[in-house]
Design a protein around this nucleic acid. Structure first.
Length: 510
RNA sequence: GCGGGAGUAGCUCAGCUGGCUAGAGCGUCAGCCUUCCAAGCUGAGGGUCGCGGGUUCGAAUCCCGUCUCCCGCUCCA
């Protein structure tokens, strides 16, 4: 796959009613997209598949739907207020972007390295008589550097906590910090990027009524975990699942629906006894990759990417990466989050978030193993791998969207072979039965071959054709999108045949 | 944000040394044909050439500004 493939996916998605640029008549809104008539069906089917596999198939997992707005302290506890608030600066020559505070800290680290060097020299000179503490307290070079560090730290704190980011730039210039790549000191101004969207709540903008749109759905689960545990009489280990929108004010939101500012997550937080997190982490790794593989998008298109550098909240983390048109990229994250989140919420809320374990006869804060998949990314993964250009035996080609049948927006299209002789009426009759089971579509325009190809491109897995024999013997042909093969079957068996191929059961039993 | 590329019909694009009513293919719609894998015939609809300004008798075309999209750099689901 290539970037050309991404372009094909984008235009195909638009042409067949899957995804439209948002507010297109106003030239669109950057990195915002709307799901069209087919897109919403596919998206809902992905959600359904996930929800059934997580909630319905696990008796110890239940779902919730938390509000997008949350108490502002939530985001202090989660670390998002600090971690998502970065002062950034660009080097104009190398075009590299850095976090301004990191640049300054690296500068401090360099000075510290100088002190260490001085100490090493001292050891060499005085040998066994070397008194490190005395040396650090008296050596003039060390003293000078120590003072430097202190000064920088004070200034940095002042500059970063104040409203005036130009002071941060002044400090960088004052220290003569150069870009590690270009070596130049040609910097842009420092700009603050807060990845959380904020708005005001209440009728007055005055006062501190600032609230955030949630940057992840997980916190809605954490703050509710005791409510669910108690009202549902849940015993550990148990899980809470949620599907919902989250918002991040990405500096760069690109690559179609891969990175959007408004996106949808499907998350499940699994609460376990401390010490068992590793085994559950492994369990969910396997369970989740099986969920993906059951779709048949190609096992080679997936790979695990284990995190070496872990986030502040995790003791193990892996990504399930998918081979998107732009290469292998993260599709789902599986994180062992320890008790970081619940402990933080205990601290900030002053409420105990402990679970009483009747087996152990003691209370503890559970550990959490999280699975978190980007719904829009899953959508893109399916679209990108499903869209294929096939060369047929006769040398002609066809465009086919091989969406896994249970996820396809329209499951079956019904065609009368011709527009007369009562064939349309017979076709309508069939639809009027089938529509209780699956999404159907009726089509009588153009040659039959053309109608087949149109449904191939739209992703409809089955086409039923009513011909003159149908009127005699109540049989029709059913054509398979992927193999293009046709079978003649009794109308009375249609529902059963189709359901066996498009029901979620087929995927979930895997 | 910085650098590169691009905005003309639903889609893919041509036209861009300024000059007839802005075109093609595919798609869409209506009718004919009645045929099991996109290809027949007839007709129709669809564009203020991204937007604003300027130069000019005249701008899709030249100039300025602006917006949007795509690719790369950082972060993440």
């Amino acid at each position: 796959m290539s970037t050309d493939q991404l372009k094909n996916v984008i235009s195909h998605a638009k042409e067949y009613g899957y995804i439209f640029p948002s507010s297109e008549i106003y030239d669109g809104l950057s990195a915002t997209y709307d799901y069209g008539q087919n897109g919403v069906e596919l998206k809902n089917n992905i959600k359904k598949y996930w929800w059934m596999s997580m909630v319905q198939m696990h008796e110890n997992i239940v779902g919730i739907d938390a509000a997008i707005f949350m108490h502002p302290t939530t985001w202090k506890a989660s670390g998002h207020v600090d971690a998502f608030n970065d002062p950034l600066i660009d080097n104009k020559d190398s075009k590299k972007r850095y976090r301004a505070d990191v640049l300054i800290e690296e500068h401090i680290a360099k000075i510290e390295a100088k002190i260490d060097k001085e100490v090493a020299k001292g050891i060499k000179r005085f040998g066994d008589d070397f008194d490190k503490e005395q040396f650090l307290a008296t050596n003039p070079n060390v003293q000078r550097n120590k003072k430097k560090i202190e000064e920088i730290e004070v200034k940095m704190k002042e500059a970063l906590t104040g409203d005036d980011l130009s002071k941060v730039k002044d400090l960088i210039e004052e220290l003569g910090i150069a870009c590690p790549v270009s070596g130049s000191k040609n910097w842009t101004d420092v700009r603050q990027f807060n990845l959380m969207f904020s708005t005001e709540i209440g009728s007055l903008a005055e006062g501190s009524n600032k609230i955030y749109l949630r940057p992840e759905t997980a916190q809605g689960i954490f703050v509710n975990y005791l409510n669910v545990q108690k009202s549902g009489r849940k015993k550990i280990p148990f899980g809470i699942a949620q599907i919902g929108k989250a918002f991040r004010n990405e500096i760069i939101a690109r690559q179609f629906i891969f990175r959007m500012r408004e996106f949808e997550q499907m998350e499940m937080q699994f609460f376990v006894k401390p010490g068992t997190q590793k085994q559950w982490f492994d369990y969910w790794k396997e369970t989740r990759i099986n969920w993906h593989n059951a779709l048949g998008l190609g096992e080679d298109n997936y790979r695990f990417h284990d995190h070496i550098k872990l986030a502040h909240y995790a003791d193990a983390a892996t990504d399930i990466e998918f081979n998107f048109p732009m290469g292998f990229k993260e599709l789902e994250g599986i994180h062992s989050r320890t008790d970081f989140d619940l402990k933080a919420h205990e601290e900030h809320s002053g409420k105990k978030l402990q679970y009483f374990d009747p087996e152990e006869n003691k209370s503890y804060v559970p550990y959490v193993v999280e699975t978190s998949i980007g719904l829009d990314r899953m959508f893109l993964a399916i679209m990108a791998s499903a869209l294929q250009e096939e060369t047929l035996a006769d040398g002609s080609s066809r465009t086919v969207l091989k969406i896994p049948a249970p996820l396809a927006p329209i499951k079956v299209a019904v065609f009368p072979l011709t527009k007369k002789d009562g064939l349309p009426e017979k076709a309508r009759e069939i639809i009027n039965e089938l529509k209780f089971d699956v999404e159907c579509l009726y089509e009588e325009k153009d040659a039959i071959g053309k109608r087949y190809r149109r449904q191939d491109a739209a992703g409809t897995p089955f086409c039923i054709t009513v011909d003159h024999d149908s009127l005699e013997d109540n049989t029709v042909t059913i054509r398979d999108r992927d193999t293009m093969e046709q079978k003649r079957v009794p109308i009375s068996e249609l529902s059963e045949i189709i359901l066996s191929k498009v029901s979620m059961k087929r995927l979930l039993k895997n």
